[in-house]
Structure formats: structure tokens, C-alpha cells
Computed example of a mutant assay.
Amino acid sequence: MADRESSARIDDAAALWAARIDARALSAEEEIELDTWLSADVRRQGALARALAISIHMARAQAPGPESR
């Protein structure tokens, strides 16, 4: 029986995918790789959603506000 992938490992991979998505548009090959990765375990979909939400939150937190003008 194969060992179940740990949630920490899924979260790490999801964070890497979120960084790639945030940096630029994925290539066709990367889209296929991402779809394959996501379809292998339903937990990966949630992990990617969380990682993307964190990425958006961090970008907003770093954006200059009116006090920096």
C-alpha cells in the first residue's frame, strides 16, 4: 500500500504552484502538469486555493497605501 502524501508536502507543492501562477501565465505543458497534479488528490485543490488566497492577501498587504505617498 502506498503511503498517503502528507498535507505539509501538498501545501508546499501548492505554494510553489501559486508562486508560478502569480509570476506569469503558465505554459500549455505546465497547465497539463498542474491539472494532473490537482486530479491526483482532492486535497490538492483546497491547498492550491489556500495558497492563491495567501498570495493575493500578501500582495495587498505589500501594496503602498495612501500613507506612503
Rank of each mutant, 00 (worst) to 15 (best):
I21L: 15
L16H: 14
A18F: 07
W17V: 13
A19S: 14
P66F: 06
E29L: 13
L52A: 13
L48R: 10
A25H: 11
D22A: 11
A51I: 05
R50L: 06
R50E: 06
A2K: 15
R60N: 14
S55Q: 12
E30T: 05
A13L: 10
V42D: 04
A2I: 10
I32S: 12
V42M: 04
I56A: 13
A49V: 06
R20V: 00
R20F: 08
E31D: 05
R60K: 08
L38G: 01
I10D: 02
L52Y: 06
A19P: 02
R9N: 13
Q62F: 12
A8Y: 00
A23N: 14
G65I: 08
L34Y: 07
I56C: 07
A23Q: 12
L38Y: 00
D3N: 07
R43D: 01
R4E: 13
A8E: 10
S27R: 15
R50H: 07
I21E: 03
I21V: 15
M58H: 12
A13G: 02
A49P: 08
R43W: 01
A18E: 11
G46T: 06
A25I: 07
I54K: 09
M58W: 10
R69W: 02
R50M: 09
A13R: 06
R20L: 07
A23D: 12
R60S: 06
S6K: 04
S55T: 12
R4K: 02
A53Q: 12
Q45W: 10
T36K: 07
L52F: 06
R44T: 05
D11Y: 01
A18S: 09
E30H: 11
R50D: 04
H57N: 12
H57I: 05
L38N: 04
G65W: 15
R24H: 15
M1V: 13
A8K: 08
R20H: 10
S7V: 01
M1E: 05
H57R: 15
L34M: 03
A19K: 14
D35P: 10
A63R: 13
A19M: 11
R69M: 14
G65Q: 13
S7W: 07
A40N: 02
A14L: 05
D22E: 13
R60E: 10
A61S: 15
E29M: 14
L26V: 05
A8H: 01
W37L: 13
A61R: 15
D12E: 11
L38S: 00
A23R: 09
S39I: 03
A18R: 03
I54M: 09
S6Y: 03
A25L: 09
D41C: 03
R4G: 05
L16V: 15
Q62G: 03
S6A: 00
R20S: 13
V42N: 05
A59M: 12
A40L: 09
Q62A: 15
D3H: 03
D22M: 03
W17E: 00
A15M: 11
I56M: 06
